[in-house]
Design a protein around this nucleic acid. Sequence first.
DNA 1: CGCAGGAATTAGAGCGCTCTAAAGCAGGCC
DNA 2: GGCCTGCTTTAGAGCGCTCTAATTCCTGCG
Lengths: 337, 337
Amino acid sequence: MEDVAREAGVSRALVSLVMRERPNVSAERRNRVLDAAARLGYRPNAMARGLASRQTRTVGVVLDDLRNPFFAEIAGGVEALASELGYQLLLGAGGRQARRERAVLAALLEYRVDGIILVSPRMPAAQIAAAAAETPLVLVGRAIRNIDVDCVLIDEEHGTDLVLDHLVELGHERIAHVDGGRAPGGPQRRSRYLQGMRARGLGRNSRVIPGDFTEEAGTNAANELLAAGELPTAVFAANDMVAAGLLGGLDRAGVEVPGDVSIVGYDNILIAHLAHFSLTTIDQPRLEMGRLALQLLLDRRDNRRPREVRLLEPTLVRRSTTGPPRATVAVTLPPAA
Amino acid sequence: MEDVAREAGVSRALVSLVMRERPNVSAERRNRVLDAAARLGYRPNAMARGLASRQTRTVGVVLDDLRNPFFAEIAGGVEALASELGYQLLLGAGGRQARRERAVLAALLEYRVDGIILVSPRMPAAQIAAAAAETPLVLVGRAIRNIDVDCVLIDEEHGTDLVLDHLVELGHERIAHVDGGRAPGGPQRRSRYLQGMRARGLGRNSRVIPGDFTEEAGTNAANELLAAGELPTAVFAANDMVAAGLLGGLDRAGVEVPGDVSIVGYDNILIAHLAHFSLTTIDQPRLEMGRLALQLLLDRRDNRRPREVRLLEPTLVRRSTTGPPRATVAVTLPPAA
DNA sequence: CGCAGGAATTAGAGCGCTCTAAAGCAGGCC
DNA sequence: GGCCTGCTTTAGAGCGCTCTAATTCCTGCG
């Protein structure tokens, strides 16, 4: 910077003003500085700038696992908005371990990033609260009560309702659910399923097959359903991976989808829209989650305001794995056609 | 730091030594400093450290698109090794545009990262060369001649050979190829396919259906094959997405896979291993690519040495979409059994 | 012609750390 | 006791920038 100033015949401070594109610099000097900088191949040092100005135009993002496309897409949403606004992303993955997650978080705090976005963190609430005291923090996909932290959440109840509405509308009554275990989203979808079945007068048809968020759980569930003899007319899978396993398992046994059984997934990951699957599922607005998280973060940093919890609405995507149940089709024919 | 020093009754320099875990600090003072730091909630400032020490323990990663799982997994590989070694990742995505890619690269250079990994960059070679002159740089998935830059590449020729060997071994002769267009990997696979068919005496059976790396290209190719009347006995798809489209298209027409047609994909993405697909494909070691890229980067920074180009070997994953061709099975029966 | 007042420019003190070089402090040997 | 050796500790000068406050330069108006 010193060199640029000398080359342009101005002071160091003026170079700083030009580099930061501040107003009140005469056009003539601005050009002189810009020329000098180009001539010398000058590149500002973001570290020094961050140190002196106490802000970095960088936000930290911690996610559970980069290789999980679901999280990667949320990060993609953050990235998209960040690059529009000229922010950088300092990214870390916890590798599914609370311990490493903590280490990553600590590193981000050392960088004095302008804020941190935690995507489905596994670490204890107390640690999150401690970090939130040091820097603006947004939580995505996990809610924590009594902590002054912005949250971006998906309305799981609504998503589950969409599934049940869709199936009931088609005429289904015997609707089973393969659940997602204790992982985030699993318990909510399960309990709303049970509640929703009751609310629709189908409580006695409720049937939960325990599982987790993997394809294997779906395969196992398919076997269990087949072994039990009577199949439900529809299955609500905890997510698309489970639905994929289910589809594979039923397929192998010669069960037709949606002819014999309708299947609904959850998440709308890549596989769901492939023609070979064409899975009816619930879409979660992942990009939007990422963008919104960053928006809340920056807004929070600039304005002192109480915590905000944003609930995003998922949507139903109708594809080919759902249709009316066979029996109902027959029954609904006019009696004496 | 000043405060910690005062609290511990030592000099600022000693605190610095302790925080960096340098040897030659007496156990007694070390503990005094550590205690004081904990008591005051002291957290080192990575910016200041980077400024003073001229190194950041941070590497930059630029990828084409975070939402593409293929790239995300490479980044995952980098991240895994980085976090083992205590490095941070500054991540940016080019959003499929050379212009934005350039902006991201410039930002990373301003951060004075210890090195930069470019994953399948779209920008011109000259710009990459210019960046490489400023900082250690590793190129993944793209080779550039005459530039002194380390590269991590996949041996596309070998991957293609594996496909052809596998199919020929099963008895296939009429093997078609849906190509990947001009995107990275496409031209290599295509030309090696043509060359390999000739080398195996099957040159006249070569058939290339133009496409790109999307599911749609696969669907179109399926239609084209069906319309042409005679189906090949096997199809080598440019990647798994194309294979998925192909599978969907053939499936809908009642063509059996692998009974009537065998299909081989490329990449081994998530969908390939789902039971519902069970796609025979070529696996690319994505995590390994990421890890290796970071290794080369750090090694290059520490040792002056000529450029290194590492070729990683893909492997064949045999699943359920390949089998012997029907005709051949009949023909190879003993004449007078 | 002089001066108020706003715009443009600059001096200089940090930001929080590392690094070099020098100082302090033991112990061991002659 | 003097002095060398090797370890531990410290002083103090930056790293490259921003920021505040002060200074200089205009322009217009009484």
